[in-house]
Amino acid sequence: MGRKRKKILKPWCWYCEREFEEEKVLIHHQKSKHFKCQYCQKKLYTGPGLVIHCSQVHKETVTEIPNAFPHRNNLEMDIYGTEGIPEKDRLERERNRGAGDDPKRYKQETGIAFVPAPPGMIPMMSGIPMMPPGHHGAVPLPMMSPQFGMVPPMPVGAMPAPPLPGRPMFPSGMQGGIHSSTEPGHPALPPPLFPSGSISADIPPAPARQPSNRKNVGYAVALNENATLMHPDNEISMEELRAMLPRYQSQHLIPRQPLPFTPPAQGEFQGAPLLYSRQDYPPPRHMHMSHSYKQY
């Protein structure tokens, strides 16, 4: 008797499970992390507000709440601070927070593949990024599974990177350094050639042609860590590159020196045996273009 069992939950963000000391700070967090328009940086108040803003002002469709966990990126949730959090999720969190004696649990990070959790699996997630200010040092997870080992400390106040399915998680502060390392499984998003802003506004270096990672290069140039230019080269137009191909010169003018034919490395070009890989036809990249035109 007299002992109060129930802990009072601190304000927490439904989108990323982060905990705050005050509701005011939480609202500020949500506005700047989850409700900020990615086109004009305006901070909106709710998810639906963001959707309406983007569709009316920018004529763009928002597909998910930015920086939210994959199972919490629902645009239709009308959440403001802790208002609007579904009862089910609130109870879930209460149960999890109350379960351990020590609420100061640590985020599971580097190296742990996140399992995209259907709503029923939320317990796995819910202990994650609680990091009360002023608390440093690594503490083993209370209910640690064997492979997790020691959990690296997380800088206070750093926003945990929302995990992607099947990918390692990194603290967002490290983005520039890690920068989407070569992942052959993601051909749709080729990793930028030059991580972290090696190119200034003036002249982007020519796209690299190293045979080693040829799969990923040849056309896209990373402008900086979060933008990729989908164009082969700033120095020469796509038409000029294309006109150099033997197949576009076969019926025309001076017979050119036969080029060594290299069979395509992958089976993907079998329908078009005339194609040469970009490495195999002239001119070399360092040659100034005005010279190469004399071949016409």
């Binding site: 086109y39 990177a161 992607l164 933008a227 990729t228």
Partner: peptide
């Protein structure tokens, strides 16, 4: 492409 909603994605810029 839409600005990345996750910090480890890159925006694709087309001609």
């Amino acid at each position: 492409s839409a600005p990345p909603s996750q910090p480890n994605q890159a925006q694709e810029i087309y001609a």
